[in-house]
Write a protein that binds this DNA or RNA. Structure first.
Lengths: 252, 252
DNA sequence: CGGGCTCTTGATACGCCTCAATGCCCGTGG
DNA sequence: CCACGGGCATTGAGGCGTATCAAGAGCCCG
């Protein structure tokens, strides 16, 4: 509904031969299915690249010839309707594997929302890698299952939650995910714009903004800067996210 | 939002030793990854059952100890909020594999919406089967990917489509899926109630009903009976589903 | 110290939900 | 065979939450 998608081009290309060894994302990603002594094999087919904000590297409807592993930064995945309405189906960060498609074409578009680094794998090369390392295929199945679970949760959000609950869910999820890779503070970062949050939650920019402002005036969050939120009452947020808002219905 | 979920119990248990050979769903399901001569192995761990409408066989939050393959009939998969709001994340028919979970617990509830037949697999037995037949694991990954694509499409529907577009999408999808397993007529069956359609599309019963009535009065569909729809203009429906409704905006 | 963003805030409109009544279908029993 | 009852579906009237439209405020960067 917001933003019109930009030009699809790939740039840069740094890194050396066996870059996989020193890859930050390795332990988080499916690549950890491959032992340290086989990393050369992996590095041989992994093609590292660097992209800037706004660059599209997977485009809905285009032939699915490559697969990607995000090694740094965040991307958004989205689908669009012909009139420009847009639904972001997820944000993918470091360690995320993208482009798994049975079909001949991609089902969504992927675009960097900040400077990112990623590894590209061509379809046939990934295929041989999968054949040689069955553990990798198992890991892929695992991550696919986890994504399915997340997708179902998001359907519940989009189909049945109020704006208030959606925003609370979004903050709560960001909170719990950020806490898995760093010290647990109430502070979370939002690398995406309000428009992107809105397109992710099935709302408008204005509603997202109003809801955040309301949380702030209720003393539940603080907004120190444009892209940071401080959760002053995480437990309360979780309740709202789950539909347990005390200020909602519940006529007891 | 509608309906309160019923009691969880499993009943019946027909069929003989090597039932897999004569299973209607075999060719459609992941079981087709196993050759005919190994079907005995499969049959040994597949536990067939019969369930009636309303019976729950997977319950959100419960330990994920079994996996299921639907061999006949239709089930609904849903998630619920504590106050009863419900989102159906999908309908699964013959050949559909269910319960794939990495987590210790199920992420959704599965309930028969008509009399069904299914096969149950215990987790450890499925595990050994997967180890012995890598092709089965590949098939599972394939189906998981397909479900992810469907889930993303549904997120677009729930987040950005109007009621009109949602109902049109629903009919169009049912149409194209039914045509893959039978003669291509404009007639589709709806084994689910209006309430279930509503919970699938993120709408209310009334809105679903009104929208169908409106399509009918516009001459685009016919409603010969409660659970049947005749598509009189499939192409038009597809356009509406894709957000190309001529009667909507588009101020040209 | 403007220019162009994104974000916030306000006023109003509208689509869908809610509540309520009626209609239809079908199984049950007289 | 028909009256009755209970589900489910349809239809109507009105309200609410979020979208839409429109300024204005804050921020970054040259």
């Amino acid at each position: 509904m917001n933003t019109l998608s930009p030009r699809p081009v790939i740039v840069a290309k740094p890194s050396s031969a066996s870059h996989c060894i020193e890859c930050d994302a390795r332990h988080r990603s499916v690549c950890n299915a491959i032992g340290e002594r086989d990393l050369e094999r992996l590095a041989a087919v992994a093609n590292p690249r660097r992209l800037e904000r706004g660059q599209v590297f997977i485009e809905e409807g285009r032939p699915a010839i490559d697969f990607f592993n995000i090694t740094s930064g965040t991307v958004k995945l989205y689908k669009m309707l012909p009139d420009g309405r847009q639904q972001i189906t997820g944000f993918a960060g470091s360690g995320h594997f993208l482009g798994l498609a049975v079909s001949e074409t991609y089902a969504f578009t992927a675009e960097a929302i900040e400077p990112i680094e990623l590894c590209r794998f061509s379809r046939p090369k990934l295929r041989t890698l999968l054949d040689d390392f069955p553990a990798l295929e198992k890991r892929l199945l695992e991550t696919a299952c986890n994504e399915l679970v997340a997708a179902q949760e998001q359907m519940l959000l989009l189909g049945r939650k109020t704006a208030r609950e959606r925003v609370a869910s979004f903050l709560a999820t960001r909170y719990s995910e950020s806490s898995t890779c760093g010290p647990l503070s109430g502070r979370i970062s939002l690398p995406m714009t309000r428009a992107e949050i809105a397109d992710y939650l099935g709302l408008t920019i204005e509603t997202v903004s109003r809801t955040l402002t309301r949380f702030k005036s209720e003393g539940k969050i603080a907004l120190p800067s444009r892209d940071e939120v401080e959760l002053l009452d995480p437990h309360w947020l979780l309740d709202v996210a789950a539909g347990q808002d005390s200020r909602a219905a519940s006529f007891v």
